[in-house]
Computed example of a mutant assay.
Amino acid sequence: MTARLTAVARRGGERTAPRPRWWGGVVDHLVLLKPRVMSLVVFTGAVGFALAPAPFDWLKFLAAMSAIAAGAGACGALNMWWDADIDANMARTAMRPIPRGVVPPIEALAIGVLLAIVSVAALAVKVNGLSAALLALTIAIYVPLYTMVLKRWTPLNIVIGGAAGALPPVIGWAAAANSLSVGPIAMFLITFLWTPPHFWALALCRSGDYERVGVPMLPNVVGHAATCRQIVIYSALLIPASLGPLVIPGVGLVYGATAAAADAVLLWRALALYRLRDGDESARRKAAMALFGFSILYLFVLFAAMLAEAMLRARV
């Protein structure tokens, strides 16, 4: 190893020492928690907390966001533990910690169960019982219902399982106000309807992986054309749903204009994909990845606009 590093340095290439072994272990365990998904979950949860009709309490906010993050991490770890067999045979997931052998499955299970228990208990003790119950429901939908049953049983897996990813803003709202109303339901509907076109766009590009491991994702069951049609339908349903947060005090014209622009781009990309439903595979994959990439930005922009306008109107 020393000789290799010396040779590389002489060629003027890599000049940094290899990462310490302990650091690699830390990174592998962080990956186990799906930090990118966790960051989006915490962000939408924070927006729900901030928009709730209650005085903003920083200590309660930090406790709630920490619990939501831990709950999301629990879902990630338990998902990777259960799906280790199929992850090892899919290009997108083969480099996850368990398939690579750097985190033992039993360790992932222990981490997931511990985080699930601690997150719900902490939310119940430090915040309130309603938000804790909603977090427990989220974990229950994502792990035993979606991961262990629906994912390998029905092509509607992501539609039903998407409820778990849509609950964080509801949890955030409940944590702040200890009650629910039409506002958090409106935020829930956005993410719930957003999840299928977001994930099916990726599935169109990874259909071979899912077919190989026996996961009935929509493109493998009904074909590319029907999947593209469903993506258009859900993208169209998002248009009225995206205007739902206008019922929240402080959310108004700025958010409405932002949502309308984002809806137009998302629907345009969905229609562009639909036009290629029976066309060249390479072009269809390119359009699907473009839609997938924009869909991530779409959700962030909508929730950021809600928060920004409410703050500008001094309602938060």
Score class of each variant (00 low, 15 high):
A287F: 06
L276C: 00
V47E: 01
F303T: 04
V125F: 07
R284Y: 03
L291S: 06
F61C: 06
R285A: 15
M65G: 05
G244Y: 03
A116L: 10
I190G: 01
L271K: 01
V42C: 12
L51N: 04
F192G: 00
D263N: 15
G101I: 13
P18L: 10
K34F: 05
A272R: 11
V247E: 07
S242L: 08
A186C: 13
L291P: 02
H224L: 05
V8W: 12
V251E: 04
L156E: 09
N220W: 03
V159I: 14
R313D: 05
L246A: 08
R212A: 14
A63F: 13
S282R: 15
L246H: 01
F300W: 11
R284C: 03
P245E: 02
A236F: 06
A283F: 00
Y146I: 08
Y210P: 06
G244P: 01
L180T: 03
K286H: 11
L114F: 15
A175Y: 06
V232A: 09
K34D: 13
A122H: 01
H29I: 09
R277E: 10
L189A: 14
R10S: 14
A305W: 07
A308Q: 05
R96V: 11
P20A: 08
G25H: 11
V127W: 09
S131P: 04
A174I: 08
G48W: 00
I190P: 00
N157A: 14
L156V: 07
A64D: 09
P168E: 03
K126A: 11
K286Y: 01
L267T: 05
R269V: 02
Y142P: 02
V8Y: 10
V149C: 06
S235V: 05
N157Y: 13
C205E: 07
F199M: 14
A261W: 12
R206C: 09
K151D: 05
L302P: 00
A17P: 04
V215W: 05
G208W: 12
A91F: 07
L5H: 13
D83K: 05
L167K: 03
S282N: 15
M80R: 10
W200E: 02
A46P: 02
S181V: 07
W173I: 08
L51E: 03
K34N: 13
A304K: 10
V103N: 01
A175I: 08
E14P: 01
R92M: 12
E281H: 03
I111S: 09
G161F: 09
T195I: 11
L156R: 10
V182R: 14
S181R: 06
